[in-house]
Design a protein around this nucleic acid. Sequence first.
RNA 1: UGGGGAUUCGUCUAGCGGUAGGACAACAGACUCUGAAUCUGUAAGCAUAGGUUCGAUUCCUAUAUCCCCAGCCA
Length: 560
Amino acid sequence: MEDRINRDFIRDIVKEDLASGKHESITTRFPPEPNGYLHIGHAASICLNFGIAEENDSATCNLRFDDTNPSKENTEFVEAIKEDIKWLGFNWDEREYFASDYFEKLYGFAVTLIEKGKAYVDSQNQEEIRENRGTLTHPGNDSPYRSRSVQENIALLKEMRAGKHEPGSHVLRAKIDMSSPNLNMRDPVMYRILDTPHHRTGNTWPIYPMYDFAHGLSDSIEEVTHSLCTMEYEDHRPLYDWFINELKVFKSRQIEFGKIFLSHTILSKRNLTKLVENNLVTGWNDPRMPTISGMRRLGYSAHSIREFCQRVSITRRWNTAEIELLEHCLREDLNKKAHRALAVLKPLKLVIENYPENQVEYLEASNNPQDDSSGIRKIPFSRELYIEQDDFMETPPKRFFRLTPGREVRLRYGYFITCKEVIKDPVTNDIMEIRCTYDPDTRGGNAPDGRKVKSTIHWVSANHAIDAEVRLYERLCLDPEPDISDGKNLESVLNPNSLEVINSAKLEPSLKESTSGNPIQFERLGYFCLDSEDSKDKDNLVFNRTVSLRDSWAKTQSSN
RNA sequence: UGGGGAUUCGUCUAGCGGUAGGACAACAGACUCUGAAUCUGUAAGCAUAGGUUCGAUUCCUAUAUCCCCAGCCA
């Protein structure tokens, strides 16, 4: 899979442009607005833009923050975005830009357009502008201010820049065509007055450029050859080209592709912001969030996210990838990388009656059976163990292979044991303890006489186990495509069981040395990792379940 | 009802006039010291209707369905 070559219609265009000599080198850009954290949908765009740069010797990708709306943007987001892109494994070297770096140049472009008679200051209020824009089916009306003289426009714009006018009193508009069937061409606003300080330019600018004006010209300033964006900007392309053509500047080319959605989650920035602000999650990096930082904290590997983006590919279609594909990419990667460990989430005491009291043996276990170079470790074994509650049933259903009264099973890397007795609480009738015997000849897990057992279960030594908190995460939404249309209560689409906290899991002692960022497979349970936020103290271990192992037993159970 | 875009197995995707292929998911089986992994197999698709052609998923014409656009957001 790793050596599969990326191919899609955009990479085809890039290749052709290089082959035909249209461009000697290629420049793309990833243009986030720093008003939130990056999510899995952005990862697709990052992989596309930075991927093209990586794949072509003569290509580079700029990181440019589209910071033209100071009321929503801040440096926390800038820093988080940079960290996420780096973590995904991409780099932009010194090519870190901000649209706000170009405010002076952009202002110059605006003046040029006025001088050409292609822009004017409109003094209608917001309401009037909206009314005169017309509708989808009816053309708009020209503004009464549309024919102001060049001198007057220049003077007004200077005053706007000097802070002499109130927000909302004037805007600068391109003079295009109020009857265009494309609403974007009906004299789009280029500048508005805002008295909000900007996170980088402070109070130096009382006016801020709008996206359509700023974005394409920023591309042009950077000599971006291929400006890749999502389909909803297709209607904006005539405007993108209009600014570039009127100003006779470097011709960047905008190419649109379909956005990628993910099932069982929410991806719009507006709703993610709401989850954070309403404390429906613990923050932008809550492990349930589809953000890069949330996924990182959950235990996703960068490689698996990049693999996912590659497999979903880039087309002009609107698509929703199933989360199962993402999880497959994750498991595939973690299966190769994760060290194994034994951990019991819901402990059930098990006593081996014929095992000597006070004896401790250290049994060898493979760190990763999928990887011979991963080495082995030793796990303490003793008379009293914990096993998983789910691994014992007094009256089992058909096809239950685990421990039941009278049955022999294998303890992973340990011995064969046979259940002799079940001890229950006399009052509640709850199972308190299982009494077993072991076969000393099966040390390490194999019987010299060649007899087989139907199952192998995991365990930890009661006296040696360490305690930990384990957080079992599930998908954010139960519905594959949650309905979050306006007016819907966001909370109602959230999975009420997206987090189950286990306070006293019992882990094999080697897990004491875990470090965050390293995946671990708790055998037979799933992939876990140390929580990067709440596990800083070695005496207070917190593990997150990244993803469970596939479980065909659970599946047959639930389908019955 | 204006403009723009999309439509291939459940999902994602290949196809560029000549047997519709892959991945994930599903199902069945083999194997197994993880009911994992691995392996094998099964089922499943060209939105519809016309036309052009020896031959159409591919070209043409309609139709249908879905998505985007009326921010001084990006």
